[in-house]
Amino acid sequence: MQNEVQFAGFGGQGIMLIGKILAHAAMEEGFEVSWVPSYGPEMRGGTAYCTVVISDQPIGSPVIKNPRHLVAMNRPSLEKFAPAVQKGGIIFINGSLISVNSGRDDVDELVVPVVEMAKELGNVKTANIIALAAFVARSGVVGIEALKGSIKEEFAQKQKLIPMNMQAVDAGIQAAKKD
């Protein structure tokens, strides 16, 4: 069984980070994982995307043409990558920045206004964590506990950020249910 999740958005939205957190959580659950970034001279503001491959077998190609799931954090990413998502996959849409849907009726579409929710929590930077948590809750690619553990480890050097990010996870889980 192999899952591929593509995360895409603007540089600076924390796209690479949530991909890494998911990969780490999956590794802790005993899966084989590969985290494959786009990389380029643009450090901020450009298009950023990464693909996380999670498998119970050694991973062959880390280059994925048709990922099973997509987490789109801005409109260009949705328009570019939604058509490639496998039938039956999940397309997560950042409802705060994307006013259209994927145009697909063969996928599970999950729209969450993560920016507004993050502002409510008091830190707009947690929007990416809300998105990741909502996606994980809906897809079940990893367990919530593994996800939380991975986030705690990522912020191990910045302990004071952990409670807010835990709130962000809970908010994301709730949002996935409401849909």
Binding site: A23, W35, V63
Partner: peptide, 10 residues
């Protein structure tokens, strides 16, 4: 190749 350098794996 560049992917070996850029990719994260356990």
């Amino acid at each position: 190749d560049g992917l070996i350098g850029q990719m994260m794996e356990p």
